[in-house]
Amino acid sequence: MAGQGTTTAPQESGREMQARTEPARRRVIGPGLRTFLIFAVLVGLGALIFPSSYFYRVGTLVWINTLAVTGIVVLLGYVGLVSLGHAGFFAIGAYATAILPNYGIPSPLAMLAGVALAGLLALAVGRPILKLSGYYLAIATLGLGMLIWMVLSKEAWLTGGPDGMVVSGMNARNLFKMVGLKLKSAEAWYWVAGFAAAIGAAIAVNLAGSPSGRALRAIHDSDVAARSLGVDVAKAKSRAFVISALYAAVAGALLALANGYITPETGGFMHSVEMVTMAVLGGASSVFGALVGALILTALPQVLTVFADYEHMVLGGIMVLTMIAMRRGLVPFIVDLWNRRKS
């Protein structure tokens, strides 16, 4: 498999490659910090051009989705595992943030509790399943997501049932007030969500270039080889699964606070599919893919009503077509095109 299309004779390739081989550059700014700064600039750029609160609200959604999809990038792009139940973890973060303040627990603690709960659940469920081949995780998470959705819809005394519930508690405006900045609520949440997405992206990029990240990427390409190099494959997969669940839960908690209202559909199957589609469309191998996928699939429905009417067909069609025509997604596809034009 790996040797496909590598017919270049070794004699000529040595010469040809010398030109492309670049020395390992020592960078002053690490790749994580660089990513954070790029994201920060993009967040600021948005704020510069947005004419109304409506735009800020859509922008907030884009960053929250980017954060959640970054978790999918870690799981799908780095390790090569598909989860069809990540909306479940998203919803656990969201509902903990919504429910716990009703019992006297302050919002920040409630968020933390929700994120921790999602992580623990991922750990408990992931470990036995991740010993098996790829299909099993997809199926098990599909079931897990449905179970979480079921609980959220049926336990109305706790969650408000299918109608959803109001989220009371923290407003981001107050955060900015503390440092003397007066912002509208929509603007305040936009900055918070953008900041969270930037941090999340930086962490994911740090991971990719680190010892742990190399082990994950090795599993993606060949778990047999990874194992032969001493990588505990089941443990590494389970770590990635937990990390990606944490991303989803943080994003869910932010959405609950920013929206002030949540419904069980945040934990629904279609939301899980949406997250995977965003990652696949943008390119699951990088955080910029997550951003592009989240941007397109969040902004497009706002512009095109046809999107709302045919949501399922559009999402499904995108998944199939991307996988057939540009398997690595938009961002790597465009980068490849660009490189080819340059050379």
Binding site: V82, H312, L315
Partner: peptide, 30 residues
Amino acid sequence: AIKPAREAPLVSLIIITIGASIFLRGAMQA
């Protein structure tokens, strides 16, 4: 959907059949 991606890795095939399932769901609705 399946044949054009026959040699694709497992992950791609999973995503393709899920995508097809969502697409068909939408088609039923339409």
